[in-house]
Amino acid sequence: MSKPPRTRFRSLDGILLLDKPRGLSSNQALQRVRHLFRAQKAGHTGSLDPLATGLLPVCFGEATKIAGGLLGARKAYDTVARLGIVTDTDDAEGQPLRERPVPALSIDAIDTALRALTGRIRQRPPIYSALKRGGEPLYAKARRGEVVEVEEREVDVHAFELQAAADLLDAGQPLLRLHVECGSGTYVRALVRDLGEALGCGAHVAELRRLWVDPFREPKLWTLDDLQALAGRGERGLDACLLPVESGMASWPEVEVDAAQAARLSYGQQVSGGFRPPGPVAIFDPRGRALGLGEVDGDGLLRPQRLFSWACTQPDVPAAGAR
């Protein structure tokens, strides 16, 4: 039996807003998309659990250089909490640890518990998580049966709100439908777990969907089926799904440099010009094309951090050390 032909990868730059399906890990979804696009280099920003669906930004080529900034962006989710059962993973994929009766709950009591988990809070991440200790993910240790102690850490929960409780209040399934907006490092599974404890019955995530990630607040999402259908008609249709690298840079303040300054930056030199504000910035040329990421110090000097390949091909470069 002959082997399928090996994928011939190509250079490709841009951002795909993938609608990750349930049942795939983020890396499995990434690899499928990478092979569909035949992209030499690809990475995703912010893992979604296999149970979760929704927005998974996939960065191709030079866009991988801004992926770290997207990881720390504000995100929004809709989730369904199943009350009364605690699992080892804090979601429906895990093994039940204990079951408790669900008490009679009012909307006021639920809202009070939600408010206590909103703002700058301390959260203990799930033991089944990708956080690393000693260079190894915690989930690998947990799967081996090792005792895993996870320290609490501060996270930002901008919104934790009840959308519907009809399932619970109508004596149906003990489900709460919730909306979450949070910052980097926040685990929705842990929020739901802690909500269940506050309500006196425990809880786990039954469903989870990521709605948006800054700066993609109203994303046009592409499913794997969408992309597979487009791939059958040629790569031009696939490539039309990609957003430019610049679309992912809205979270950084912009600074503009001229051709001479761009040339110096391309050789790793800092440039003066009274740049503002201090801190990480997105560097653009006068035509509005992004050149990469930089850092502005307190004196207004701009230093290159991660420049795109097209920014590193400047023909006329001043002598080293020049400003």
Rank of each mutant, 00 (worst) to 15 (best):
A231T: 00
L242K: 12
A190C: 11
W252P: 11
P278C: 13
R303E: 07
V257Q: 07
L243Q: 10
H204D: 13
A203V: 04
G300I: 13
V317L: 14
S266F: 09
D316A: 05
L227F: 07
A240E: 12
A203D: 04
H204R: 10
L199C: 05
A263P: 08
A198K: 05
L265T: 04
A263S: 15
V213E: 10
V317W: 04
G185S: 09
D214Q: 13
G279T: 00
A198G: 04
L195I: 02
L301Q: 08
D297W: 11
L208I: 11
A290R: 13
G237D: 12
F308Y: 14
L307R: 08
A260M: 06
R287S: 15
L191T: 08
A240K: 11
L293N: 01
A229V: 12
Y187W: 11
D225W: 10
R210M: 14
L230T: 08
E207M: 01
L195A: 05
A229G: 02
E256C: 11
T186S: 10
F275R: 05
P277A: 12
L265W: 07
A231N: 13
Q270D: 02
A319K: 10
T223L: 13
E256G: 05
C201K: 01
P315Q: 10
R236H: 06
V257C: 07
G183I: 07
G294I: 01
G185E: 04
F216Y: 11
K220P: 03
A259R: 13
S247C: 10
P277V: 06
F308T: 03
P304I: 00
A206G: 15
L265I: 08
D285I: 08
A250R: 14
G185I: 04
P286S: 06
P286I: 03
V188W: 09
A240D: 13
L221Y: 12
Q261W: 03
Q305P: 00
P215Y: 02
P315V: 03
D299V: 03
E254K: 15
G292E: 02
Q269D: 09
D258M: 13
G294W: 02
Q228N: 01
G273C: 09
Y267F: 06
V257S: 07
R233M: 15
S266H: 03
I283T: 00
A259H: 13
S251R: 10
F284E: 06
L307Q: 03
Q269S: 06
V281Q: 02
D239T: 15
A198E: 04
A263F: 07
L224Y: 09
C241W: 01
G294M: 02
G279W: 04
L191H: 07
W252N: 12
S251P: 00
R193G: 00
G237W: 15
H204S: 13
D226S: 07
I283F: 12
C241L: 01
L199A: 05
V205C: 10
D258Y: 10
E235A: 09
G294D: 08
A190G: 04
P278Q: 15
A250K: 11
Q314K: 14
L291E: 11
Q228T: 14
G300M: 15
F308L: 15
A311C: 03
R303K: 15
P244C: 10
D239M: 15
A262Q: 06
G274T: 00
G268Q: 14
S266R: 05
L208V: 08
A259M: 10
R236T: 11
D285A: 12
A190P: 10
L301D: 05
E197P: 00
P278T: 12
C201R: 01
A282L: 11
G298L: 07
L242H: 02
M249P: 06
D214I: 00
L293Q: 09
I283P: 01
